Simulated scan of single mutants.
Amino acid sequence: MAIKSTVFKVKLNVADLDRNVYEDFALAVARHPSETDARMMLRVAMFALHAHEHLQFGRGISTDDEPDLWIKDLTDAIKLWIELGTPDPTRLRKASGRAQKVLLYAYGERAFKVWWNKNADALARFNNLSVYSVTDTELAALGALAAPGLALQCTISDGELWLTSGDQSVQVKPVALRRAGE
């Protein structure tokens, strides 16, 4: 019998000073059995960073055809595709062909450095792909926030996220390694 996903209910309040987005979101986040709390919370943080009425969680970790997060328009065209981790470059090539904009938020500093050195040149040809990295320290701090019935406040300024739950606060500042079109 397969192990089922664990669903976390998250009340997310976003105050994005960069984009003038001020909104509350009631999220049901399914954590795949092979996914860590830290990775799941990174998905929530990236949801906050790119908050939009049409932003949705994809099946990402459990399927090749969907990202971790995406925005699709009313015609089902993919406007934004967000990946986490160090995916196979073939997956990013497919995403770049299907979506207007592709964002990768990499984590796992040791593994990512090896992955980036091996794949940076191949990824350079995807004009709609931006790559960012998140430190292991930031990732671990995000994981410590995970809890059932989480109420999370996220303030964003200058691309930096401040996530607060109760008396815990976490700062995440994704570092741009490659921006689309560069």
Rank of each mutant, 00 (worst) to 15 (best):
V7S: 06
K118R: 10
T155F: 00
D37F: 01
Q153T: 09
E160C: 13
F25P: 05
W116Q: 05
A124I: 04
L42H: 06
G97A: 08
L163M: 01
M1P: 12
P33K: 06
F8K: 05
E109H: 07
F47C: 00
K113A: 07
S133T: 02
E53R: 14
N119I: 03
L123Y: 01
A30C: 06
I78V: 14
V114I: 13
L163S: 02
L177K: 10
V21M: 04
W162P: 00
M1R: 14
D136F: 10
G159T: 08
K4N: 10
D88A: 09
L69N: 12
P33T: 11
E23F: 11
K72Y: 03
S34E: 12
R43V: 00
N127I: 04
D16C: 09
A151P: 05
T63I: 08
N127Q: 15
S157Q: 13
L139W: 02
T6L: 09
A144Q: 03
P67Y: 07
A26V: 01
L163Y: 02
K4F: 14
W162F: 13
A26D: 15
G108W: 00
W81L: 07
E35Y: 02
A120P: 09
T63Q: 14
M40K: 02
M40R: 10
L129K: 14
L139K: 03
F112G: 07
A95V: 10
L80N: 02
A144R: 07
A176Y: 06
D76G: 04
V134F: 07
V131N: 06
Q171S: 11
V114P: 03
L69A: 12
A48L: 13
A45G: 04
L103G: 12
P67Q: 05
L177E: 08
M1L: 10
W116F: 13
A2W: 15
N117I: 06
W162C: 10
V21G: 00
D121G: 15
P148T: 02
R110K: 12
Q100R: 10
